[in-house]
């Protein structure tokens, strides 16, 4: 009985954290409690949601992607240059980038390399490519992309609609299809999955390709919001995405992921910064407190995890 309760609590933890944060923000800043306010508060979370899902896909198989921040920056730089000037070529480059992600996954599998090192190396590659595509800050996001992110959806602001839709799709794909079960299984027990006749190479490459797709969506939405880009624009997404995914219930060891939790985790990471800003906390302390919030939630989760096993 207490095991199921603990399991349920653990799954609900990101949602509870989000509700608490939102409540605190509404209390501090009632203006945020409106269509306009929620939109302002959350619109920068859209690219973070995609980046976090990308990270979660890589975490599924027990890897860690340290290159996602550089990758998202690169995509944003492509979006404001190539995609704006010659759309066909831009799409081709982005497709190539996704393919590169799949190849990185294949490389990690074939040579049994530590993913953390390969992706760290790739982060410099992406940063370098971003600087080549866009040497100095600037560029213009294509009008259709800007318009897409300015969309005023009825009743509920766009960021919430996007977060809900993305969470639903990712949840269905990862948790409700046999395809998703195999992907997760490859992280949880790779030997068993391989014995059952699945190619771990294909699985890892697929997961990385999916992660690449999410990275592309993150870069495109970020470019749509900021209307232009620079090569440094998303470097902090690496840490944010890891924190968001782990906060949302994924495990570093692989196999255990939660798409809905990852989306909620991304929202919590976005809101935590706003909450501290509304508190008028000295910025020197902010990053420390942000870390403390994270540790607190993870400690709670670890405690619940112990109960679960008990």
């Amino acid at each position: 009985m207490s095991t199921t309760l603990a399991r349920r609590l653990r799954a609900l933890l990101p949602a509870i954290a989000l509700a608490l944060l939102l409540g605190a923000i509404f209390w501090l800043q009632p203006r945020a409690m409106s269509y306009f306010g929620l939109n302002l508060l959350l619109n920068l979370s859209i690219p973070i949601v995609f980046a976090t899902l990308s990270q979660m896909l890589v975490l599924t198989i027990g890897d860690l992607d340290l290159g996602i921040g550089g990758f998202v920056s690169f995509v944003a730089c492509v979006a404001v240059t190539l995609l704006a000037d010659s759309p066909a070529f831009g799409v081709l480059v982005l497709a190539g980038a996704v393919l590169a992600y799949a190849l990185v996954g294949a490389l990690v599998q074939l040579r049994r390399l530590p993913a953390i090192v390969v992706t760290l190396g790739m982060s410099f590659v992406w940063f370098g490519l971003a600087v080549i595509v866009l040497p100095s800050p600037g560029g213009t996001t294509p009008a259709w992309l800007q318009a897409a992110l300015r969309l005023k959806t009825p009743l509920v602001p766009l960021p919430i609609v996007v977060a809900a839709a993305v969470a639903a799709v990712a949840w269905f794909l990862m948790m409700r299809t046999s395809f998703g079960a195999v992907l997760r299984g490859a992280g949880g027990n790779p030997v068993a999955v391989a014995r059952a006749g699945w190619s771990l190479l294909t699985i890892r490459a697929t997961l990385y390709a999916l992660a690449g797709c999410m990275g592309v969506l993150s870069g495109l939405t970020l470019a749509g919001l900021s209307t232009s880009a620079d090569a440094n624009i998303a470097l902090r997404y690496t840490l944010l995405s890891i924190a968001g995914a782990i906060l949302g219930g994924s495990e570093f060891t692989g196999g255990r992921v939660s798409p809905v939790g990852a989306v909620l985790g991304a929202l919590v990471m976005t809101l935590a910064a706003s909450f501290l800003a509304f508190l008028r906390l000295n910025p020197d302390w902010q990053i420390g407190v942000q870390g403390a919030i994270l540790i607190l939630i993870l400690a709670l989760r670890a405690g619940l995890g112990r109960l679960e096993r008990a």
């Binding site: 800043q29 203006r31 306010g37 900021s226 440094n232 902090r236 706003s274």
Partner: peptide
């Protein structure tokens, strides 16, 4: 980081 400053400015608008 620009993304962080963007969030900061959005909070200022809200305030």
């Amino acid at each position: 980081q620009a993304t962080e400053q963007a969030a900061q400015i959005q909070n200022m608008i809200l305030e």
